[in-house]
């Protein structure tokens, strides 16, 4: 048997209530492999509340806190304060929210958690819409995508606005660590989650999680679609540690976005001009990311401009939210 390339430990149980082929389910499974049992996960109202907690069962071998959709960031700050008060130093405090609970409805609480320098990991599993309630558009829904609230037909041709840049929003808070995750690349995923675990301070992980019913494709294609998203530059894999960008997967030339788009029913209506428009957008963002990587690397040269973090409390190894602020 080939050596396992990711941890064997399973902290997500079978019998959960995710749809067949659910990438958010695989994302939780991989995340907990990296973080281990000393973890508490705060989950807002989202697909994962339903997946994890059909009362009186739980699909997770770690502590779970259910909270309102807007409150994940606040709840992780509270959980960290509680862990500090109890003297629990080895606990990973994790918020695990969808794109709505992170980038739309959950945005102020996320911003607050990052700004308070809460020592916690916030994970956004991004299925690019309000899928739990029947596929409504969110700020994370990409340009042109069909949803029930961005229909196709008449004067509407899918979502007219581009996807919200949540990594940009998060990075404006200068977290200790932020990275994109793709469950189609489990080794890269687990390495980043383990790195996040090893650091103190606010950490953010953005996982792209294909959704068979919401994106309208057949469930066996989940992994292939995720791979295409990264290899076409739509969802680049990168990490930003203390302001330094690093792209973690560069496969030579990007694949054209066609294959990714054509594989999904939500993009089926797009014409050649639409695809060209999306291709231009993807190329622009990819070039920009390459430059950010090149330029941020210059900042670490000795004697040149340096990123000032970590913050006072983090530098002193003080992990508690309250102490770090004081």
């Amino acid at each position: 048997m080939a050596k396992l390339t990711i941890p064997a430990e399973e902290l997500m149980y079978p019998g959960h209530a995710a749809c067949p082929g659910c990438a958010p389910a695989l994302t939780m499974r991989l995340l907990l492999k990296a973080l281990g049992p000393r973890t508490v996960v705060s989950i807002p109202a989202c697909c994962w509340t339903v997946i994890a907690t059909s009362y009186p069962t739980t699909a997770l071998g770690v502590a779970v806190l259910d909270n309102p959709i807007e409150a994940t960031g606040a709840s992780v700050s509270g959980l960290r304060a509680a862990a500090d008060a109890l003297g629990l130093k080895d606990v990973n405090v994790v918020g695990f929210a969808g794109d709505g609970g992170t980038a739309d409805i959950g945005l102020q609480a996320l911003s607050g958690m990052l700004e308070r320098r809460t020592n916690a990991i916030f994970v956004m599993y991004d299925n690019e819409g309000y899928m739990n309630t029947g596929v409504q558009r969110s700020g994370a829904t990409p340009l042109g995508a069909w949803t029930t609230t961005t229909p196709v037909g008449g004067s509407s041709g899918g979502k007219p606005e581009p996807k919200k840049d949540i990594m940009g929003i998060v990075l404006a808070h200068h977290p200790i660590y932020a990275a994109t995750l793709n469950p189609s690349f489990p080794e890269d995923f687990v390495r980043k989650a383990e790195k996040a675990r090893s650091l103190a301070g606010p950490r953010f992980l953005h996982a792209l999680t294909p959704c068979p019913p919401g994106w309208k494709y057949s469930s066996e294609e989940t992994i292939r679609l995720g791979r295409l998203a990264t290899d076409s530059g739509i969802f680049p894999l990168f990490e930003v540690e203390n302001g330094i960008y690093r792209i973690t997967r560069k496969g030579g030339a990007l694949k054209p976005v066609d294959e990714y788009l054509r594989a999904q029913g939500r993009f089926r209506h797009l014409g050649d001009d639409d695809v060209r428009r999306i291709q231009e957008d993807v190329r622009f963002r990819w070039e920009r990311l390459l430059r950010l990587e090149a330029e941020s690397a210059n900042l670490v040269n000795p004697g040149s401009l340096r990123f000032p973090g970590p913050w006072i409390g983090e530098r002193a190894g003080i992990t508690g939210t309250l102490e770090a602020d004081g």
């Binding site: 149980y13 079978p14 019998g15 959960h16 209530a17 994890a52 907690t53 059909s54 009362y55 009186p56 069962t57 739980t58 699909a59 071998g61 779970v64």
Partner: peptide, 8 residues
């Protein structure tokens, strides 16, 4: 809720 879902 402490019953593991693997009973389902």
């Amino acid at each position: 809720a402490t019953t593991p879902s693997y009973g389902i």
